[in-house]
Simulated assay, not measured.
Amino acid sequence: MRIAQALTDVATIGLLHHRDHADQARLIDQLQTAVTSRVVIEQATGMLAERFGLTTEQAFRLLRAHARNHNRRLTDLARAVVTGREHLPRPEPDVR
């Protein structure tokens, strides 16, 4: 009975360790995705600010509004702007 309990305890510890490792790997992947998304959004914001003479805050609002108005994910739109596959129209003066 003691041997069976010891084996059960070892198996439980192994399973818990595996689950913790999987949780950590998933968290690392999520954080990496968030950082990558943030970088591409910042790049697109900078490009729009330079192109249209906006502050970075105004450029971000323009990017976000365009994504919302066209039912696009912000990161996908930002990536398209950075790669030159998408060009946003010049904002109206009141958007600035």
Rank of each mutant, 00 (worst) to 15 (best):
M1R: 10
A4V: 07
Q5I: 08
Q5S: 14
A6N: 00
T8F: 12
V10W: 08
A11G: 14
A11M: 14
T12H: 13
I13D: 10
I13H: 12
I13Q: 15
I13V: 11
I13F: 12
G14W: 03
G14Y: 04
G14P: 03
L16W: 06
H17A: 14
H18L: 13
H18S: 14
D20C: 13
H21P: 08
H21R: 13
A22P: 01
A22R: 13
A22V: 10
A22T: 08
A22K: 11
A22I: 10
Q24R: 10
Q24V: 04
A25S: 10
R26F: 06
L27T: 08
I28R: 07
D29L: 15
Q30I: 11
Q30T: 12
L31G: 02
L31M: 11
Q32E: 13
T33K: 11
A34K: 15
S37W: 01
R38S: 15
R38W: 08
V40H: 08
I41H: 07
E42M: 14
E42F: 11
Q43R: 11
A44K: 03
T45I: 14
T45A: 13
G46E: 12
M47G: 15
L48K: 06
L48T: 02
L48N: 05
A49G: 12
E50D: 15
F52Y: 15
F52G: 05
G53M: 06
L54C: 09
L54I: 06
L54T: 05
T55Y: 06
T55K: 07
T56S: 02
E57S: 12
E57L: 12
Q58W: 01
Q58T: 06
Q58C: 04
A59F: 09
F60S: 13
F60I: 09
R61K: 07
R61T: 04
L62R: 06
L62I: 03
R64F: 06
R64N: 09
A65S: 12
H66M: 01
H66G: 00
H66K: 01
A67T: 03
R68W: 04
R68N: 07
N69R: 02
N69H: 03
N71G: 00
R72M: 05
L74T: 02
L74Q: 03
T75Y: 00
T75F: 00
D76K: 00
D76N: 01
L77Q: 01
L77I: 00
L77E: 00
A78L: 13
A80I: 02
V81F: 01
G84Q: 00
G84M: 02
G84I: 00
G84T: 00
R85C: 04
E86P: 00
E86D: 04
H87L: 12
L88T: 04
P89F: 04
P89H: 09
R90S: 07
R90M: 05
P91T: 03
P91Y: 03
E92S: 07
P93N: 00
R96D: 08
